[in-house]
């Protein structure tokens, strides 16, 4: 299979979304972050995982949006939800209460122990770049049974150590989830189990919890991944080749995005709920 003979008609971004969507098993209860996770979770729901339960932090439970929301609280999410609860109830009963299988997060930066930074670049008191902050992520990452992270792969986003741990993966030493108080351990999830990028899949090493590459997307080289990673990234002995998107997955994704663009372009044209 040489690159010259295979005409691939999908983008790296589509590859990432489709691969992220496939990670969601049908019937999973997923707490969905806005942006890439939301796109992937809805693609999963519209393809292989129709019974996936999507929860957004705005309080919408079991929502089935027809178009992707721009914000975490778009009316579309409430209109198509089974029920909408208050935000305190969402975080206390549904998330902290232990009803979420997968927390699906995006981030600005991730490090080798899957810690996430959405707070700032530089020093806290004198930031070089101030980012939006934690939002729901700090507790989504600890109260969900496991966490998937999806993020574009680059040296800017994949750093050895994040400047600020907004949301814990496995801590500065990879051991943040070990030796917890037994009562806390009962409620703590496994943490990040899968990172989906536009180049590859990474999973934490079972012993050290350092992220290692476990699957490479079609047409991507090891060198590309090494070049785009801010630490000396390791590759699993058993390295998989990520399957290409199917025509059906691409069709559904493109229709979803086209619907979304049409919807958001028309939102000030006097459309009334």
């Amino acid at each position: 299979m040489s690159e010259a003979t295979i005409a691939r008609d999908y983008t790296p971004a589509e590859m990432m979304t489709v691969t992220a969507a496939r990670a969601l098993v049908n019937g999973t209860t997923c707490f969905v972050g806005i942006g890439l996770p939301s796109e992937a979770a809805n693609l999963a729901r519209l393809t292989h995982a129709p019974d996936t339960v999507l929860i957004y932090e705005s309080g919408t439970i079991q929502t089935k949006p027809d178009v992707l929301p721009l914000s975490i609280g778009d009316g579309e999410l409430c209109d198509t939800a089974l029920t909408t609860v208050s935000v305190p109830e969402m975080f206390r009963y549904w998330l902290q209460g232990g009803h979420v299988d997968v927390g699906f997060l995006g981030t600005a930066q991730i490090d080798r122990y899957a810690n996430l930074n959405t707070t700032l670049i530089g020093d806290y008191r004198e930031p070089k770049v101030r980012l939006p902050g934690g939002g729901g992520a700090p507790e989504i990452a600890t109260n969900s049974r496991e966490v998937f992270v999806t993020i574009k792969h680059s040296k800017r986003t994949f750093v050895k150590d994040v400047d600020f741990i907004t949301t814990v993966g496995f801590g500065r030493d990879g051991k943040a989830r070990d030796n917890l108080n037994p009562e806390t351990a009962k409620h703590m999830g496994k943490g990040p189990t899968l990172v989906i990028t536009d180049l590859c899949l990474l999973r934490p090493d079972p012993d050290t919890h350092e992220l290692i590459v476990t699957s490479i997307h079609p047409g991507v080289t090891r060198e590309q991944i090494v070049e785009a990673t801010g630490w000396e990234v390791r590759f699993a002995d058993q390295l998989d080749a990520t399957p290409e998107p199917t025509a059906h997955e691409l069709d559904v994704l493109r229709e979803l995005k086209a619907r979304t663009d049409r919807h958001h372009a028309g939102d000030t044209a006097g459309e009334r709920a």
Partner: peptide, 13 residues
Amino acid sequence: VLRGYIGSDLPKV
């Protein structure tokens, strides 16, 4: 009271 901020740097700042 919540089971929150575990492993986060937010309590430091």
